[in-house]
Design a protein around this nucleic acid. Structure first.
Lengths: 234, 234
DNA sequence: CGACTGATTGACTGCCCTCAAATAGGGTGG
DNA sequence: CCACCCTATTTGAGGGCAGTCAATCAGTCG
């Protein structure tokens, strides 16, 4: 094992995936990683392609979705620092990616190729368990999204997605929680048409619960939006 | 290891979970199992409860769903022979069930308690991998359901669910594929109101593509229903 | 035969999507 | 600095899918 890993993690970096591993195991995993820059519109993985690498965002943001044959995008979740993807690589030798993930912001990722994954699995017995924890989280999240789609109105789904996105990609600014989201991105992620998203945001802005700029939303407080979805689901 | 396991598997029993295990491992797993009868309306597990056992249907059928706070049921999948559940028990020591599963038909299940799971994990390294395979399948299925809910019409969702149910719980009869489903069950599983389900079924019956009895649907051919959902998703 | 559960049909309603058209922000090149 | 363009955003009008409600019919079982 190397003395120091070549990868540079930003301060405050936390990972659900690493929570399932012991400190020396994390060391070993990090030592086997290669770092790589990513850029907007770059595909990190495509659904159906052979799974050839596991990876993890370090900085930046990507969107995980599945493509509909009609051309639509079924948004599944944000890929943010600490999330683990391409887990199919580690689970099953000849596997394929389940979803497409596309970068939306510049940043960097850690990458493990197939040989690295294989040797890591042999050295770290708890790696499978860590994968399980992460996948269980993903499953839980998708079930939650399905419930939202089924039981909540467009307004509730928008409020829910603002809360979810705030937790994942929100920055605390002077006027509240800032989200780098266009109306269209919010619409896609909340499974709502662009026009209903725009209309609802206008309403909320006139209520003073949020403030809009071009490509940016500032939430005055989370609690207002958390309250909205509390009926019918969760 | 025992000479013969006490459990009696029906002929033709296949399990996605066991596919991830070697023959001797399957032996060991079966030997550690206890068999138990189940009855309609019995709860096999409740979401949020501590996960105290892993289990697998042998005969009969159950429904996996999540409860909405409004009282609605978010159907997730049928639990049929060979499926594995309560996997949280094996993944993480103090875990909780993610979903509720309720029996809808009389039958029997295999059960593994926590001590059994722990000793099995120690003896079978590939057990974690088998869990991964199954959970990945569940994830894939839920994503598919989310896509259906988002991109398909009520008619398409009904057709899709008839196909899905046919594969899981269909029996091949004289007049076609027989499904033991009430209109209400189909409506819930397809995320459609009872009335639209009834109406669509009436239409299809008058077209001759299916035949209805009380609590039972007979599909003349699957291809008709497979064709319906082919646009917009999958 | 009566009770209960499942199935059916019609009328009405409403949420939210589609489409069209106009407005505004932000960066670029002249 | 200003004209220009491209994209993001806004607003209104109209329509349709499918859900809700109410009432009736039909099959099964005791």
């Amino acid at each position: 094992m190397e003395t120091a890993s070549a990868v540079a993690l930003p301060p405050g970096f936390r990972s659900r995936f690493f929570e399932g591993l012991s400190a020396p195991e994390i060391e070993a995993v990090l030592a086997a990683a290669r770092q790589e820059r990513i850029f907007p519109h770059q595909f990190l993985q495509r659904e159906g392609d052979p799974a050839t690498r596991m990876w993890m965002p370090v900085t930046g943001r990507a969107a995980a979705y599945r493509l509909a044959s009609g051309g639509g995008k079924l948004f599944l979740r944000w890929a943010v620092p600490g999330d683990a993807f391409g887990l199919a690589t580690i689970v099953k030798a000849p596997a394929r990616y389940l979803v497409t993930i596309e970068a939306v912001q510049e940043g960097s990722i850690l990458v493990w190729d197939i040989p690295s994954c294989e040797s890591l699995v042999l050295r770290c017995p708890s790696l499978s368990k860590a994968v399980n924890l992460v996948v269980a989280d993903y499953l839980n999240g998708v079930i939650d999204a399905l419930g939202a789609r089924s039981f909540q109105t467009a307004e509730q789904r928008l409020a829910r997605m603002l809360v979810v996105s705030a937790r994942q990609i929100g920055r605390t600014g002077r006027e509240g929680i800032e989200l780098d989201l266009t109306n269209e991105q919010l619409a896609v992620t909340a499974q709502v048409s662009l026009f209903t998203a725009t209309r609802k945001l206008s309403t909320w802005q006139s209520l003073g619960t949020l403030k809009k700029h071009r490509g940016k939303i500032v939430l005055r407080s989370l609690s207002f939006f958390e309250r909205i979805g509390k009926d019918t689901w969760r």
